[in-house]
C-alpha cells in the first residue's frame, strides 16, 4: 500500500466520513452487510488514491464519487446474484421509504442508461444534488451535466418518474 495516509489520518478520515458513506451506500444497496462492504471498499480506494484525495479542494465530492461508483459496481455484481433488499428499520435507513422508491427507480433507469448517465441520475435523484454539484463530484463540465440531466429527465418522465422522488435543482 502506498504510504499516502498515516494510520492516524486514515482513522480520522474513517471516523469523519464513514457514517455518511454508509447512509448513501445503504440507500443504494438496501442491505446492511453490503453497505458496510461498500464503506470498506470506498475507504480502501481513498487510501489507494491518497494523493488525489489530498488535492481535492472539496474532499466530500471525492468521497461521494468513490462511494457512488463502488455501490453501482456492487449493484452490477449483485445482478449476478438474487439478493432481496432488507426490511426497513436497519441502522442505515434515514429516508427509508423515499430511498427504496428512489433506488427502484434508478434500477429501472439502469436498463436504459450508460454508466456515466446512471451515476449522474444517482446523484440527481438519490442525493438531490444540483447540476453544479454533480459537475464538481464527477469532475465534468456543467454543460455536460446539463445535457445528461435533460436526457435523463426525459427518460424518467417516459418511464413514469415517481411523484414523491426528490431531484436536484438546476
Amino acid at each position: 500500500m502506498p504510504p499516502g495516509l498515516s494510520a492516524k489520518e486514515l482513522q480520522d478520515l474513517y471516523d469523519r466520513y464513514a457514517p455518511g458513506m454508509y447512509r448513501r451506500a445503504f440507500a443504494l444497496l438496501q442491505r446492511e452487510a453490503d453497505a458496510w462492504d461498500a464503506v470498506q471498499e470506498s475507504c480502501i480506494r481513498v487510501l489507494q488514491s491518497a494523493a488525489a484525495f489530498r488535492r481535492e479542494a472539496r474532499p466530500m465530492t471525492f468521497i461521494y464519487r468513490v462511494t457512488t461508483n463502488v455501490c453501482l459496481n456492487m449493484l452490477r455484481t449483485r445482478a449476478l446474484r438474487d439478493v432481496a433488499p432488507e426490511d426497513a428499520g436497519s441502522e442505515g435507513a434515514v429516508d427509508a421509504l423515499a430511498a427504496t422508491e428512489c433506488r427502484d427507480f434508478l434500477m429501472k433507469l439502469a436498463r436504459e442508461l450508460d454508466e456515466r448517465a446512471l451515476t449522474v441520475a444517482t446523484l440527481h435523484y438519490l442525493d438531490g444534488m444540483s447540476q453544479e454539484e454533480i459537475a464538481q463530484v464527477l469532475g465534468l463540465s456543467r454543460k455536460t451535466i446539463v445535457r445528461d440531466v435533460q436526457r435523463i429527465s426525459a427518460l424518467a418522465r417516459a418511464l413514469g418518474e415517481p411523484e414523491g422522488i426528490r431531484r436536484g435543482a438546476g
Binding site: R45, Q48, S49, A52, R65, V66, T68, N69, V70, L72, N73, L75, R76, A79, M107, A110, R111, E112, L113, D114, E115, R116, L118, T119, V137, L138, G139, L140
Partner: peptide, 21 residues
C-alpha cells in the same frame, strides 16, 4: 467512458446492470 473513482475525467465504462436499451 472513463471511471470517476481514481481519475476525475468521468465515470467508468459500463452500465451497472444491463446494456442500454
Amino acid at each position: 467512458a472513463v471511471d470517476p473513482v481514481t481519475s476525475p475525467e468521468g465515470p467508468s465504462p459500463e452500465a451497472p446492470f444491463a446494456h442500454p436499451g
